[in-house]
Design a binder for these strands. Structure first.
Lengths: 231, 231
DNA sequence: CTTGAATTCATACGAACGTATGAATCACCC
DNA sequence: GGGTGATTCATACGTTCGTATGAATTCAAG
């Protein structure tokens, strides 16, 4: 007897309107827990408990824990990269054939990450740490997904940076970009997670800068690193 | 009847000579797996299988999975920080009251990480990724352990950097150090894990620099970022 | 009010987890 | 070469994991 479950799980019906409140609660709870404990450290049961949902809800709405995880990332990453790309568009339109100044490009990378929680309603501080973690996660499927999601922005920023740093060989830029994103991710993580980062030297106990101060610090560091002289 | 297990587990007899070959095999296997799958994603059974050991061996030699994990980190991190500190000592002795040049300080941070596999017999490339991962791990006990393990080096490098960058307020240095370690960790991870990092733009498909080339690139970027002008 | 789809519920299953136990085996000194 | 402590072994226990199932419930339209 074929059983009609009312509706097949979301994984098999991707066109269904995705607005169930349980669905959103699961995504929110999963996001929070993924930030705190990583993918492998977050169980389906912990998620549904935090969301006040039933165990079957994950299977019903997402089909699989992994599909839920991917959706958690996609929900945040898509608008983030869209924001980055539209900033890039605006900068290039404004510059009219001239290369966009380096600091502006770096800001187009950095600012959307830091500002997301204000432009994207409901986004928590956790977003940054989530994405940082995602890129370091051992799960190859997750990594591939994130790379795909960022591919367009990556090629755009590549060529823009090459135009802003014409004396820099592309091979060098590739490595400096790695340093860039390392600094960005770790810096964001420290900023968001500012609470208890006790410093051995009390005089250096860090203050938490406001959003603009933090963006400025980050942009200065990264822009200086990107335009370092080469051997 | 009190049962004499031959010997109580290592956790309760920390003075025992730690040179069992099974013990080392467990540490090696755990190191490899922790790098690939993270702490929560690595099971005791996977470790003993990779080490060719018995399930009871973990309990016998370390008492607990968590104690094994901490020992994996400690085994690598201790000599690494010792190397960094002795480099710092040499630089400061050579400079005689003068501040040590910035690039030399940065190199004292970077080089031990990159070189460890040659100066420390048996260390695999995995070491870097392991440590990078450890600092991002959600496990608070692990994080506290790593912070403790690095505390001495941290205070030393703090004051040395402040002397090399006298115009930089300590509060600024704190944040730049975060960027520094983010770039270091992520850069090392990319370098070690160089294999398949396909780049959208084929012209930018990165080459893997040799050790010295990589160290130089990293030092340039970081030193430039650290000495960026402040607002 | 009825009906049928959409959703939520309690519950079950097999697998894998971390840990513990006591017997078997090994290595070495007298 | 017999005995003693150190180590390894097979195995078991209780828990938690991800997933699946089918019966209840909710809810909007007829």
């Amino acid at each position: 007897m074929s059983v009609t479950l009312g509706q097949p799980p979301a994984a098999y019906a991707p066109d269904r309107p995705r607005s169930s409140s349980t669905r959103e609660a699961l995504l929110d709870a999963a996001e929070q827990l993924l930030v705190e404990h990583g993918v492998a450290g977050t169980s389906t049961r912990a998620i549904i408990k935090a969301a006040g949902a039933n165990l079957g809800a994950v299977n019903y709405h997402f089909g699989t824990k992994e599909d839920l995880v991917l959706e958690v990332f996609a929900r945040r990453l898509r608008p983030l990269n869209q924001d980055r790309i539209s900033r890039l568009n605006a900068l290039e339109a404004e510059a009219q054939e001239q290369p966009v100044p380096l600091e502006k490009l770096v800001e187009a990378i950095v600012r959307p990450s830091v500002e997301a929680r204000e432009t994207q309603p409901g986004t928590t501080m956790a977003l940054f740490r989530l994405i940082c973690r995602g890129f370091q996660d051992p799960n190859p499927q997750l990594k591939a997904f994130l790379n795909k999601e960022c591919a367009e922005f990556a090629t755009r920023i590549d060529s823009a940076l090459l135009r802003a740093l014409p004396w820099l060989p592309p091979q060098e830029l590739v490595w400096r970009e790695r340093f860039l994103f390392g600094a960005l991710n770790h810096g964001l993580d420290s900023w968001v997670h500012f609470d208890n980062l006790p410093h051995p030297n009390p005089e250096m106990q860090p203050m938490r800068p406001d959003r603009e101060g933090f963006i400025h610090r980050m942009v200065s560091f990264i822009a200086a690193g990107l335009s370092a002289p080469i051997a």
